[in-house]
């Protein structure tokens, strides 16, 4: 699965969690740019991503995700593992 496909799959998850149907994902997007993206919804997002891609994150992975780009990179590395 390449980056574009991952972003395509992530978009509906993000839109559902943050209740925003016009949200467009980009590498540089951070929690500060999205309404309702706080420490509470972040964990819901993580869980949805894990279920949807059937991967498991580690706590350490979470600290490294500074934006959507980092998130996609982490997902790619998990899918390859």
């Amino acid at each position: 699965m390449d980056k574009t496909e991952i972003l395509e799959k992530l978009t509906p998850i993000f839109r559902a969690i943050f209740g925003n149907n016009s949200l467009v994902l980009s590498d540089g997007l951070t929690a500060n740019d999205v309404d309702n993206w706080d420490s509470l919804t972040h964990m819901l997002l993580i869980t949805e991503i894990e279920n949807s891609f059937t991967i498991k994150f580690k706590l350490k992975d979470l600290n490294k995700m500074r934006n959507v780009g980092d998130m996609v990179e982490t997902i790619i590395s998990k899918l390859q593992a």
């Binding site: 420490s39 509470l40 964990m43 819901l44 993580i46 869980t47 894990e50 706590l59 979470l62």
Partner: peptide, 25 residues
């Protein structure tokens, strides 16, 4: 508290979804 208590807790309770978050909070 968010970084060193809440995040590890909610991460380990994450399969309970929103209720895991409530418990961690």
């Amino acid at each position: 508290l968010t970084d060193y208590v809440y995040t590890p807790l909610s991460f380990s309770f994450r399969r309970y979804k929103i209720w895991g978050i409530v418990l961690a909070l």
